[in-house]
Design a protein around this nucleic acid. Structure first.
Lengths: 126, 126
DNA sequence: TTATCATATGAACAAATGATCATATGAAAG
DNA sequence: CTTTCATATGATCATTTGTTCATATGATAA
């Protein structure tokens, strides 16, 4: 209590003489992106963390596709695809264009491809 | 019913003459990784989709750290960190070494860094 | 206008997730 | 052996998430 107050109610470890992190932590805290950025980052990856959405993105690597084509390809309902496309669009990972009644979706940029490829390498290489 | 049976109970669209996907879909289906791979890929990204875990990984970019240091740095309970470290370890994204009572965690490989950097670029560039 | 096709969306519900609390394990010090 | 420190883990619970169902919107054709 005489020292700096604990950030939360969790002491975790003494860290007096044994192995003081204080200095190291201060340094690392300096290097960390701010909380909002970290939050956005997690939100971005969260989007890739669903099979349906990953499949959609992977499919769009090849060609732009309409909603019903995606539904048929992934074997899920039109509604499910539509909901997920909304998530992808809100995150600006895909764009769409209208042609009559049909709406074609495509990848928003090449970052998407790069991120997925990177993940793909990780799970295949080993 | 005379044609191929619908994969699910979802017609989605006619796709007779208007804009038949059949050919295109067959081609794309060919390019898609198999379902298990896609599933694993989503699972991998799911792990990056949590602020606590992203923070842990980011912190480990700088240096190996013990559990209590991470808890202090992220301002969460020791238990919460420990649970998340287990997830990261199960996914082989981090490794650990023991030194007496303390356990130090560090990044398993550079893929982790590459994936996160890629995501970081996406959210900052625009 | 009315019917139909392609897509979007809101409500509802089951499943997955992440934090907390209490407790267990494991190592070193006394 | 007992205590203490560092970490791990199981149970519980509130949130979040993704699908389904029903329905709405929006565009074209009749």
């Amino acid at each position: 209590m005489t020292e700096k107050d604990q950030t939360s109610g969790t002491p975790a470890c003494a860290a007096e003489d044994t192995h003081s992190h204080a200095a190291l932590l201060e340094e690392i805290r300096h290097e960390l992106p701010d909380d909002n950025t970290l939050y956005d980052l997690a939100d971005l990856f969260k989007i890739f963390g669903d099979t349906t959405r990953v499949k959609i993105l992977y499919a769009l690597f090849e060609s732009e596709l309409c909603v019903c084509a995606l539904a048929e390809l992934l074997d899920v309902s039109q509604s499910a695809v539509s909901h997920q496309l909304r998530v992808l669009k809100d995150a600006e990972l895909v764009t769409r264009r209208r042609d009559g009644k049909t709406i074609y979706y495509s990848l928003a940029d090449e970052h998407v491809r790069a991120i997925i490829e990177m993940g793909f390498e990780h799970i295949t290489e080993e």
